[in-house]
Design a protein around this nucleic acid. Structure first.
Lengths: 247, 247
DNA sequence: TCAAAAGTGTTATGAATACACCCATGA
DNA sequence: TCATGGGTGTATTCATAACACTTTTGA
């Protein structure tokens, strides 16, 4: 069945994951410390090569499980974009398909995985104008920013997540199975870096059909008067959208 | 410099183009008739293999020029998504990075290109439930729907275009360099398949800062009272967005 | 003079904002 | 009883929807 023209360039394909969560009042991404060259010692997005006979989506789910121990069930995963500049990997031509994952703040069940220690890191510090790690000279890349073009990928992932909160119910993907309106609001505030009025937010998300599904239970874990607990509703879109100040 | 692990699967990478325009009151896509197997005789999206040392964006621009003769300047191109299911090309593992292009209704300057005849075709007929062309038995695939998974790619491209009209000034990418408000409105109406109030639409697009740039000239080509001609403005976003009925 | 489309004005409706206020709990 | 956050009510502002009406052309 192999009838591809012989001169066709063949390239290695990887998937890379932008796994975001909200944690300690900051938007955080999952990163691993690279154990091998290139960019050994530098931080990078988790990812790896796509296997033979493996779908891209599958590869992303597998890497997510392998490198972070997360169960696909509790995490939203969607394709982000593909990066294929010829020089992006010094080892040769590598095209990477980036995926965006939104996860609740579970303790990284890292232990047991064979990968380098995965850890949550605030995106602000990951992107704080470190030099894009083109560590050709130095032997080890510690503190040189994200490896490869992963800073660009992370930026794109964050922007996608921010935009999605406007018109989809995916903010809930950052919350536990059951959550209060205030917890969801804090997700919005942290992802957007913007204060929202608690009362108007409450009205918006509770009045929008099928956006939230009440569980009947309440909690006082946030202090004050008991708050209703909700699950994510069946709505796929938030219409009309909940807009940020100005994009 | 080649230090990729030897057992890494290498795959061929193509770019495929969803080139859309508005033409004869219908949303149309550019398709080519395949001259070689697989799916010989079937319609397919224009595209081709990414060359050695070529960026993905470059490859998309090159294919656009080669297969359709369009100049990049007059056409908006953006990455759409990547498709890599193991069985999507019978010749072997091929991952395709799809690009979305929005073009004005130029006569396809096809002549002179070495590719198969490119032609505009209404998307409604391209997607009218033909069997997804898995033409294993038949020798020639004429009238068997789009080749490969191109129907899925086309659907994704159309949905992206529809969504983008809501919050970006890209509707103008379907118009000539200079256009009237009514011409822009017809783009919206045809892409969305929905009637818009001419007067409210006029107000919305002309009052939004930097969305349209008046040229000073007028035209009567649409009949009736002369209409002002505009160019696309410098705005990158349309805020607040111009929403469809219900997504 | 008429049809046709451009463009303006006006009112009504609906949603977001801003904020006063009451409610229910733990400490 | 008091601090804390949950939740409701309401006036105001802003944007869109709906539509009457005037303007400017070609036929």
């Amino acid at each position: 069945m192999e009838h591809l023209p012989g001169q066709v360039t063949k390239v290695a394909v990887t998937v890379d994951l932008v796994v975001l969560t909200v944690r300690d009042d900051a938007l955080c991404a999952l990163v691993v410390r690279r154990a091998v060259e290139p960019h050994r010692g530098a931080l990078a997005l988790p990812g790896g090569f796509v296997l033979d006979q493996e779908d891209l989506e599958q590869a992303a789910a597998r890497e997510l499980a392998e490198e972070t121990g997360m169960r696909p069930g509790s995490v939203h995963v969607e394709q982000l974009a593909t990066y294929g500049a010829p020089g992006r990997d010094p080892r040769g031509r590598v095209v990477t398909v980036a995926y965006l994952a939104l996860a609740p703040d579970l303790p990284v069940p890292a232990a047991g995985s064979d990968a380098a220690e995965a850890q949550w890191s605030p995106v602000a510090s990951l992107l704080a104008d470190n030099h894009p790690g083109s560590g050709i000279d130095s032997d080890i890349d510690r503190d040189a920013g994200l490896a490869f073009d992963h800073a660009e990928i992370l930026r794109d992932g964050i922007e996608r997540a921010r935009a999605k909160l406007e018109y989809s119910p995916l903010g809930a993907a950052f919350c536990a199975e059951e959550f209060t309106v205030a917890e969801l609001r804090r997700v919005y505030e942290i992802v957007w870096g913007e204060r929202l009025d608690p009362r108007n937010f409450h009205r918006k998300v509770t009045k929008t059909e099928a956006f939230l599904e009440p569980t009947g239970a309440t909690t006082t874990r946030d202090g004050g008067r008991p708050a209703q607990l909700f699950r994510r509703g069946s709505a796929e879109h938030l219409h009309p959208p909940l807009l940020r100040r100005a994009p």
